[in-house]
Amino acid sequence: MVFTVPVRKRVAGPASRRAVLGGLAGAAAAVALGGCWPARDKPAARATPHPLAPVVAGTLAMIDRYQATMTAYPDLSTRLAPLLADHRANLDALRRAMGTPSPSATASASASASVAPDPAGAVAALHAAEQAGQAGAAAACLAAVADYAPLLGSIAACRATHVEVLS
């Protein structure tokens, strides 16, 4: 049905004025296209994000940060490599918990992290990122369903040990 598809897509709760107007605009666009919308091409309902997805994104960002710092300052590599390895292991554990088998399937979404103009500043930036990461994982742990709380708690605790190492 040409007219119902865009309306259905936009109106989830009680139809607001904007949603109705949006639906009308969508319907007008559909008319302008002048064809039938094949049933199989209907826009799919947006999937709910996995509860672990934000922690995965944060872990990927942390990995980017470490890699960029180690590339900019190779002398820091010995000190930072074990911490980077911890984050990679955390990422693997998160993916196993989510049932996402292929590590290569989810490429890092963030752009290459920027690095401070001196090594001490770069380490300080990692320290701050680990602190924020610990707080984020702790909050996620406290809000999580029982199945995910232990993993998220371990990740928070791991990041706490990193904060101390980088202090």
Binding site: L83, A93, L142, T161
Partner: peptide
């Protein structure tokens, strides 16, 4: 969570005391 975090911090400190650097574990 606080207890787990404290235990992890102390374990890492003891590992460093025994010469392991940085003495952290992922989980």
């Amino acid at each position: 969570l606080d207890a787990l975090t404290d235990c992890a911090l102390r374990a890492a400190r003891w590992r460093r005391a025994t010469g392991q650097q940085p003495g952290t574990v992922p989980l």
